[in-house]
Nucleic acid binder design. Structure first.
Length: 587
RNA sequence: GCGGCCGUAGUCUAGUUUGGUUUAGGACAUCAGCCUGCCACGCUGACGACCCGGGUUCAAAUCCCGGCGGCCGCACCA
């Protein structure tokens, strides 16, 4: 512990390296900086693009998930419907004496024995009264509390010049998908299951976004909403993933105070009921593989289940995918929530738009249905001018209820009107139902893009002979290949620039560097994670061969210049290893 | 938001205690030139800083106040 100040941890090292080499830094430095905002430089921006490209390759290309790009600002109604206006806030009280701030619901739960769900429902006034009634004092200094206040985590703004048009910055990209469900369902050719992904910025006005990288006020989120029929929750990919192991930390164990990791296969997790939805289990397996592709070994990953009161308002079950990082231990990179039909139902309620889908049965089902037929010949004389109204209301009434009431009481009360059995005919009709309408369920894997960038950096970082190396997986490295003249004279730079240009033309991210000695250039390239270095020497001018150097092993092979494009292409698609790029070479 | 500590070039740092002796010194990095036949060689030169705003004083990197930012602790993280 005492050595901590002497040996900076990886987080500090990564941040320094990131800043020095232009991966990212804190925004608005010239005005003193603003906490929670970060700017990516050219290397970081490209690293992040490559990481997001991998997400797209997996979800969009391979699984056929639709990608959309929707606005960041939404009218307030959207987040009223989603529940964020009500839930995405904290009720805080401040101690008047020591000025410490506390979450009101925590205090009430602890000192007034008010249940979790109850505590959350209380209004400002009720909280104030409860605090007074139970004489809750500051647990730190015994002081009294001031007025409870809400802190809304969403950024609020106005849309257009009229201040009554309130809007919010989205705290998640998911709502952009739910509100467009009708269009998207159509785009998916009206078939379930289907998924939609959105990768974009989200805003959260965090109370105190410290620790540079991990809690930002503006960040990139990749929300994937996967819609399925709750009556057909089976996942057609299950057979491909059922034997993948998932390291789970279950809520039931957490409640006992244990963070024991239970290693189960996807199949076991489902049969044992640890994970409620097949699709969710499969997405968790995919998320695990994805992180392995970013350089995080499986042993450094876990999925921790959220306790009932830790869960978001929309979820019935939620796991966080966590990665072991040096500074904080377990660090969330993705969340996997079973959101059921919560969001679509809420948007149905608030917008009045039907979000249900129709699914045709294989065979139409014949169903008996009780119907109430008003007999106008009887109703007319009794109700006169109201007769038409009564008839309409009768047809809207629940037939079962009407029938039951008549059986029990001998009449049915429709508002003020007493409906006698002779006014109506209760018939049993056979109806053919061709299908059913229902609101789809949703499982949501949601990745923090920036956090993926961080863990990729931390797991890529290593030190060899006192030199820092970022051993990025070759397909996320921001620069693919460095091109160097062995010395910058005698025609070598000219030839090197030709090769550099060829590689650029072939679509590679190639960088030319002739500054300083060759060793210095290799060291610089290693530090920003360039997987391959191509060096042009005097032999190149004679036989058109170059050396290719591997970032991680520092080994070299000799290859023909004209073969480089196809060799490199294979290498970056993992179709060839470094040794396949040429003949061993000793410089 | 609160409390403690802190803020000198891209980075690390000298100077701050005791205000003036400093055109604020050094190292690394960067750039230019020389050198360089495969892993941060060397030489010459260049660029580059007292977080911001007030105050005290003849004089402020140095003392005081406020703000911003950082680290740690508390709290917070649907």
């Amino acid at each position: 512990m005492t050595d901590e100040t002497k040996t900076p941890d990886k987080f500090t090292i990564i941040n320094e390296l990131a800043r020095r080499r232009g991966f990212f830094w804190q925004s608005y430095e010239i005005y003193g900086g603003a906490s929670g905002f970060v700017t990516y430089g050219s290397l970081g921006a490209r690293l992040k693009q490559n990481i997001e490209k991998k997400l797209r390759e997996l979800f969009v290309n391979k699984l056929g998930i639709l990608e959309i790009d929707s606005p960041i600002i939404a009218p307030s109604k959207v987040f009223e419907a989603s529940g964020h206006v009500d839930h995405f806030k904290e009720l805080m009280v401040e101690c008047l004496k020591c000025k410490r701030q506390f979450r009101a619901d925590n205090l009430l739960r602890e000192f007034a024995k008010i249940g979790e769900s109850e505590a959350e429902k209380l209004s400002l006034k009720e909280v104030k009264e409860a605090i007074e009634k139970h004489e809750i004092r500051c647990p730190e200094c015994g002081g009294t509390f001031g007025e409870p206040k809400y802190f809304l985590i969403m950024f609020k703004t106005t849309i257009g010049p009229y201040s009554d048009a309130v809007g919010y910055g989205r705290p998640e990209a998911a709502q952009g998908i739910f509100v467009e469900f009708r269009h998207l369902y159509e785009m998916a050719r009206e078939k379930l299951p289907f998924g939609v992904i959105q990768i974009g910025h989200a805003l959260r006005n965090e109370i105190s976004p410290r620790q540079g990288l991990i809690r930002w006020r503006e960040f990139t989120i990749a929300d994937l909403e996967f819609f399925f029929d709750p009556e057909e929750p089976n996942c057609y990919l299950l057979k491909d993933f059922e034997n993948e192991t998932l390291p789970l930390v279950l809520a039931e164990n957490k409640l006992r105070g244990s963070e024991e990791i239970v290693k189960v296969t996807v199949k076991e997790a489902l049969t044992k009921g640890y994970i409620k939805a097949e699709w969710q289990a499969v997405f968790m397996a995919l998320a695990k593989k994805l992180l392995v592709d970013f350089g995080v070994p499986a042993e450094k990953q876990r999925f921790i289940e959220k306790l009932p009161w830790e869960k978001a308002h929309y979820a019935v079950q939620s796991f966080d995918q966590e990665i072991c990082v040096e500074r904080w231990g377990w660090f969330e990179v993705s969340g996997h929530a079973y959101r059921t039909d919560y969001d679509l139902k809420r948007h149905m309620q608030f917008s009045g738009v039907d979000m249900r889908v129709f699914k045709e049965y294989e065979k139409p089902v014949e169903r008996k249905r009780t119907v109430v037929k008003p007999l106008m010949a009887k109703l007319g004389p009794v109700f006169k001018e109201d007769a038409a109204n009564v008839a309409e209301m009768l047809s809207e009434a629940d037939p079962e209820e009407v029938e039951a009431s008549i059986k029990k009481n001998g009449y049915y009360m429709l508002g003020k009107c007493k409906v006698l059995p002779e006014y109506i005919e209760i018939a049993c009709q056979k109806v053919k139902e061709r299908g059913r309408k229902f609101v789809p369920h949703v499982v949501e894997p949601s990745f923090g893009s920036d956090r993926l960038v961080y863990v990729t950096l931390e797991y890529a970082y290593r030190v060899k002979d006192g030199r820092a190396i970022l051993s990025f997986p070759r397909d996320v490295a921001p620069i693919q290949v460095g091109v160097y003249p062995l010395v910058s004279k005698n025609g070598l730079p000219e030839r090197t620039l030709q090769i550099h240009k060829t590689l650029l033309d072939e679509g590679f991210m190639a960088e030319y560097d002739e500054a300083g000695s060759i060793g210095r250039r290799y060291a610089r390239a290693d530090e920003i994670g360039v997987p391959l270095g191509i060096t042009v020497d005097y032999d190149t001018l004679k036989d058109n061969t170059v050396t290719v150097r591997d970032r991680d092993s520092w080994k070299q092979v000799r290859s023909r210049v004209e073969e480089l494009p196809q060799l490199l292409r294979k290498y970056f698609r993992w179709k060839a290893d470094f040794e396949d790029l040429g003949k061993p070479f000793k410089g």
